[in-house]
Design a protein around this nucleic acid. Sequence first.
DNA 1: GTCTATAGTGCGATAGAC
DNA 2: GTCTATCGCACTATAGAC
Lengths: 234, 234
Amino acid sequence: MNYMAFLSFLEQSDESFKSVCRRTYVENQRVISVKKESTAIKNLKKILDAVFYISVKKGFTAMTMRDLSNHTGLSMGAMYAYFKSKDDLLNIILTQGMSMISRVLENIMKLHADPQLQLEAVIKAHIYLSEKERSWFYFMFMEAKKLSPKDLKAVKNAEYYTEKILVDILQAGAKSGVFNDQNHVMTASIIKAMQQEWYLKRWKYSSRDITVDAYTDYVLGFVKSFCWKNNGGQ
Amino acid sequence: MNYMAFLSFLEQSDESFKSVCRRTYVENQRVISVKKESTAIKNLKKILDAVFYISVKKGFTAMTMRDLSNHTGLSMGAMYAYFKSKDDLLNIILTQGMSMISRVLENIMKLHADPQLQLEAVIKAHIYLSEKERSWFYFMFMEAKKLSPKDLKAVKNAEYYTEKILVDILQAGAKSGVFNDQNHVMTASIIKAMQQEWYLKRWKYSSRDITVDAYTDYVLGFVKSFCWKNNGGQ
DNA sequence: GTCTATAGTGCGATAGAC
DNA sequence: GTCTATCGCACTATAGAC
């Protein structure tokens, strides 16, 4: 599966940006006072796009509601129909982002049974998803620590969850003899670090014209040389 | 060299936290109105410690000057004797941090001639330094993007600089036949990602009682399996 | 060299018209 | 469902006493 194929997969599993906005609307109707779904989704999309655009440049805290108003074309009053407060907005974005990632990785897992293919697929999918929703991933990483302790715990659990997916695959593969028997938790952590690199330092790879597929292949080469028994075909 | 040995090395090369504060004072005397050096260094240290403590929790933008005043025990007015503005404070911290890293890595490089030993030493030193000045590294990463375009460029150049140190070693080793001949820029980027992981996700390793030496060894194992010719002794 | 007190600014949020 | 106008508050930065 390359990046193009992954995008088709996302469409099939109803994970377009618009679909995620629809989910956000449905799951937050007790807060959102706008009743017409099509309007709500359209404006939510505008709001999220603007939040990412502004926050990536100067951070969520430094973003003012007036900034957001200017970028969305909505007035201050209109925006407050979509969230209770600025903090509430932060919460909605982080929560929805985390559940999107979990859903996608779970769906990807189901495509394979063989640990080698599964590991490749999950590593790729995470990087590809972070490419597609680059600003969202970057935002989640940078703003997560501003959450309340309770919500911060949820973010850390999400980190452990995606790590555990990798650990389970590594364990299964070690048991069946295709992977080296190492400290799987450490290996998974380091794989996650490589995945993160892609969206945290995107400017570096853009300026070097390195595509997401080229980056993913390099990461897989690194991982195979360490995990695959018989040296990953190097 | 393990972490303890690295700490001795830092002392020898005059890179204690206090020394760095002294440099900060000397290099910013045109801004700092305090004339007595010992007072200035003592208070600068207090200020930096407090900035890191507060910013790691909620970010530099969300930190108020009152927060800083409470944590340092200095009044608002007194603090403004050490920097022109909140932005100026940010600038000083980022600039001093970057030059500290460059100095240390350069000094480490000089200890070895052999590419394999050099690569090990530089990778270790970076992780060890980020362990010692954890909050400073974390702060630099999280707050860098709030700089002006000009200063942002300096940060990106610092990223390229530390990456280039790795690339040069990898090239020398490939030429002399001890390293595999790969895309050295990509390899260096990925090594940097692993180094970053240590200070960006420190909470994860603390909760698992993984020491900085254990982490460093694991990273080196990963790197060796990919870069060392004849598979890094696995 | 440090304090207290405060000027001036710009924020998040809302009430009420349309 | 959206807009305009505005309130009350908390912020950065400084002036002047000690």
